[in-house]
Amino acid sequence: MSGSDLILLEEEHVRLSELAETLLTQANASFVGLIDRNGQPLGWCGELPDVDRTALASLAAGNVAATEGLAEMIGEPSFAAMYHEGESEHLHMSTLGRIAILVVAFNERSSLGLVRLRVRQLAPDFEEVFDVMESRSRNPGGSGALGLPEITDEDIDSLFGDSF
């Protein structure tokens, strides 16, 4: 990979959660999701529908990646945001820096204009956190430098006991 592990620390998690809650309130959104561009869910808040969050995250990341592929084909560096209009729920997706995607779901209690405005206002604060994460992932030294516990062969073998 071009970088090392992507690591989310406790204080970053708290900061991202605060920002997501602020966006949720200010945009009158149904839920807000933060996803890494490879499809890993990073955090959620709001009234989450009864769906598999991992699946939702991977589909959103795939959607963004495919849309960026389309942008490239027509000579655009990227499409900054995407909007999917449903009958009652709508999705607004935008990229945050180089590593994250912001998903905002909203309904008739809000509007596309309000969501876009609030996303634009808060994006720099989100990006500040993700820039730190990205910078860390580019630095050599590995996860051990941050105290990831020593994983032994026995630990790995033990994973295959009960699940299969």
């Binding site: 598999d52 991992t54 699946a55 589909l59 795939g62 994983i151 009960d162 699940s163």
Partner: peptide, 29 residues
């Protein structure tokens, strides 16, 4: 230990975009 198997397939069940299966393998340390 598993999430939903997501398959984005064509009508003839050929994979269109991707399949995804999330697995929770347990806990290490």
């Amino acid at each position: 230990a598993k999430g939903k198997l997501v398959s984005l397939a064509t009508e003839s069940e050929r994979t269109l975009f991707f399949d995804l299966l999330p697995l929770n393998l347990g806990t290490i340390r």
